[in-house]
Amino acid sequence: GYDPNALYCICRQPHNNRFMICCDRCEEWFHGDCVGISEARGRLLERNGEDYICPNCTI
Protein backbone atom coordinates (compact mmCIF):
# COMPACT_ATOMS: atom_id res chain seq x y z
CA GLY A 1 0.00 0.00 0.00
CA TYR A 2 0.83 3.66 -0.04
CA ASP A 3 2.82 4.86 2.96
CA PRO A 4 2.58 8.67 3.30
CA ASN A 5 5.59 8.58 5.64
CA ALA A 6 7.86 6.65 3.29
CA LEU A 7 11.12 8.50 2.60
CA TYR A 8 12.41 9.07 -0.90
CA CYS A 9 15.02 10.93 -2.85
CA ILE A 10 18.49 12.19 -1.98
CA CYS A 11 16.82 14.41 0.65
CA ARG A 12 15.16 11.40 2.41
CA GLN A 13 11.85 13.23 2.78
CA PRO A 14 8.28 12.04 2.14
CA HIS A 15 6.42 12.60 -1.13
CA ASN A 16 4.53 15.68 0.20
CA ASN A 17 2.51 16.03 -3.03
CA ARG A 18 5.59 17.32 -4.86
CA PHE A 19 6.41 16.31 -8.44
CA MET A 20 8.53 13.16 -8.40
CA ILE A 21 10.41 11.23 -11.06
CA CYS A 22 11.49 7.60 -10.99
CA CYS A 23 15.01 6.54 -11.96
CA ASP A 24 14.81 3.99 -14.76
CA ARG A 25 17.96 2.28 -13.48
CA CYS A 26 17.50 1.87 -9.68
CA GLU A 27 13.72 2.55 -9.63
CA GLU A 28 14.05 4.91 -6.64
CA TRP A 29 11.81 8.00 -6.63
CA PHE A 30 13.18 11.55 -6.51
CA HIS A 31 11.61 14.98 -5.99
CA GLY A 32 12.05 16.84 -9.27
CA ASP A 33 13.29 19.99 -7.55
CA CYS A 34 15.97 18.02 -5.64
CA VAL A 35 17.44 16.56 -8.84
CA GLY A 36 16.90 19.56 -11.12
CA ILE A 37 14.08 18.10 -13.24
CA SER A 38 11.01 20.27 -13.72
CA GLU A 39 7.61 18.65 -14.06
CA ALA A 40 7.51 19.82 -17.70
CA ARG A 41 10.94 18.24 -18.38
CA GLY A 42 9.78 15.01 -16.72
CA ARG A 43 6.72 14.87 -18.97
CA LEU A 44 8.90 15.57 -22.02
CA LEU A 45 11.24 12.68 -21.11
CA GLU A 46 8.20 10.42 -20.74
CA ARG A 47 6.67 11.53 -24.05
CA ASN A 48 9.95 11.00 -25.89
CA GLY A 49 10.39 7.57 -24.28
CA GLU A 50 13.67 8.71 -22.71
CA ASP A 51 14.96 7.19 -19.48
CA TYR A 52 15.59 9.31 -16.41
CA ILE A 53 18.80 8.28 -14.63
CA CYS A 54 19.27 9.69 -11.11
CA PRO A 55 22.48 11.33 -9.80
CA ASN A 56 23.40 8.15 -7.86
CA CYS A 57 23.28 6.04 -11.03
CA THR A 58 25.08 8.52 -13.32
CA ILE A 59 28.29 8.52 -11.25
Rank of each mutant, 00 (worst) to 15 (best):
Asp3Ala: 01
Ala40Cys: 14
Phe19Arg: 06
Pro4Lys: 15
Ile59Gln: 06
Cys57His: 05
Leu7Val: 09
Pro55Arg: 11
Ile21Met: 07
Ala40Arg: 05
Tyr52Lys: 05
Gln13Ala: 14
Ser38Arg: 06
Asn5Gly: 04
Pro55Tyr: 04
Gly42Leu: 12
Asn5Lys: 04
Gly49Phe: 04
Asn5Tyr: 01
Gln13Phe: 05
His31Arg: 02
Arg12Ser: 11
Phe30Glu: 00
Leu7Phe: 11
Phe19Tyr: 12
Ile10Asp: 02
Ala6Arg: 02
Glu39Phe: 09
Ile53Glu: 14
Gly32Asp: 12
Met20Ser: 10
Asn16Thr: 12
Tyr2Asn: 15
Pro55Trp: 03
Gly42Glu: 15
Asp51Gln: 14
Ser38Lys: 05
His31Thr: 00
Thr58Val: 08
Cys54Ile: 00
Gly32Asn: 05
Ile59Arg: 08
Phe30Pro: 01
Asp51Asn: 05
Asn17Ile: 06
Asp51Ala: 14
Glu46Ala: 14
Cys34Gly: 01
Cys26Gly: 01
Leu45Arg: 10
Gly49Trp: 02
Leu45Ile: 04
Glu28Arg: 10
Glu46Arg: 11
Cys23Gly: 00
Glu28Trp: 09
Cys23Phe: 00
Val35Asn: 05
Glu27Asn: 06
Gly36Leu: 06
Cys9Asn: 00
Pro14Met: 10
Cys22Ile: 12
Cys54Trp: 00
Glu39Val: 09
Gly36Glu: 12
Ala40Phe: 04
Thr58Lys: 13
Pro4Ala: 07
Cys54Gln: 03
Arg25Asn: 13
Gln13Glu: 12
Asp51Phe: 05
Pro14Ser: 11
Asn5Pro: 01
Arg18Lys: 10
Pro14Gln: 13
Phe19Thr: 04
Ile37Asn: 07
Tyr8Asp: 14
Cys11Lys: 02
His15Cys: 11
Pro55Thr: 13
Cys34Leu: 01
Ile10Ala: 07
Asn5Met: 07
Leu44Asp: 08
Asn16Arg: 09
Ile53Asn: 15
Tyr2Gln: 14
Gly32Val: 08
Tyr52Arg: 04
Asp3Thr: 11
Arg47Ala: 13
Cys26Tyr: 01
Glu46Phe: 05
Cys57Leu: 01
Glu50Lys: 11
Asp3His: 13
Leu44Cys: 09
Glu39Ser: 08
Ile59Gly: 04
Pro4Val: 05
Arg25Tyr: 14
Cys54Phe: 00
Ile37Cys: 07
Cys11Trp: 00
Pro14Lys: 15
Tyr8Asn: 15
Gly36Ser: 10
Phe19Ile: 09
Phe30Ser: 04
Asp3Ser: 14
Cys34Lys: 01
Arg25Ile: 05
Ala40Thr: 07
Gly49Asn: 13
Cys26Leu: 00
Asn5Ala: 02
Asp3Ile: 10
Ile37Glu: 08
Tyr8Gln: 09
Gly49Asp: 03
Glu50Met: 06
Cys9Gln: 02
Gly1Asp: 14
Thr58Gly: 10
Arg47His: 08
Asp24Pro: 13
Pro55Asn: 03
Tyr8Glu: 11
Asp51Pro: 03
Cys9Lys: 00
Gly42Ser: 08
Cys34Asp: 03
Cys22Val: 15
Ala6Phe: 05
Tyr8Leu: 12
Gly36Pro: 02
Cys9Arg: 02
Cys9Asp: 00
Tyr52His: 02
Asp33Val: 05
Pro14Cys: 08
Gly1Glu: 15
Gly32Leu: 11
Asn56Trp: 10
Cys26Ser: 01
Tyr2Ser: 13
Glu50Leu: 05
Leu45Asp: 10
Gly42Phe: 09
Glu27Gly: 07
Leu45Met: 07
Cys34Tyr: 00
Glu27Lys: 15
Met20Asp: 02
His31Cys: 03
Cys54Glu: 01
Gly42Asp: 09
Glu46Gly: 07
Cys57Trp: 00
Tyr2Trp: 15
Ala6His: 05
Tyr2Ile: 15
His31Ala: 01
Phe30Gly: 04
Cys11Phe: 01
Glu28Asn: 04
Ser38Leu: 07
Asp3Val: 05
Glu50Asn: 09
Met20Glu: 03
Ala6Tyr: 01
Glu50Val: 09
His31Asn: 01
Asn17Met: 09
Pro55Gln: 13
Cys26Met: 00
Arg12Glu: 09
Cys54Asn: 01
Ser38His: 09
Asn16Lys: 09
Asn5Cys: 02
Asn17Ser: 07
Arg47Thr: 14
Glu50Ser: 05
His31Gln: 01
Arg47Trp: 08
Phe19Val: 05
Arg18Asn: 05
Glu27Ala: 06
His31Met: 01
Arg25Ala: 14
Arg43Gln: 12
Ser38Asn: 04
His15Glu: 11
His15Trp: 09
Ile53Thr: 14
Ile59Lys: 15
Thr58Trp: 01
Glu39Thr: 04
Leu7Ile: 13
Ala6Asn: 11
Asn17Val: 03
Asn16Asp: 08
Thr58Met: 07
Gly36Cys: 06
Glu39Met: 04
Tyr8Cys: 12
Ile59Ala: 10
Gly1Lys: 15
Ile10Asn: 10
Gly36Phe: 04
Cys57Asn: 02
Asp24Gly: 14
Pro55Met: 07
Gly49Ser: 14
Cys57Gln: 00
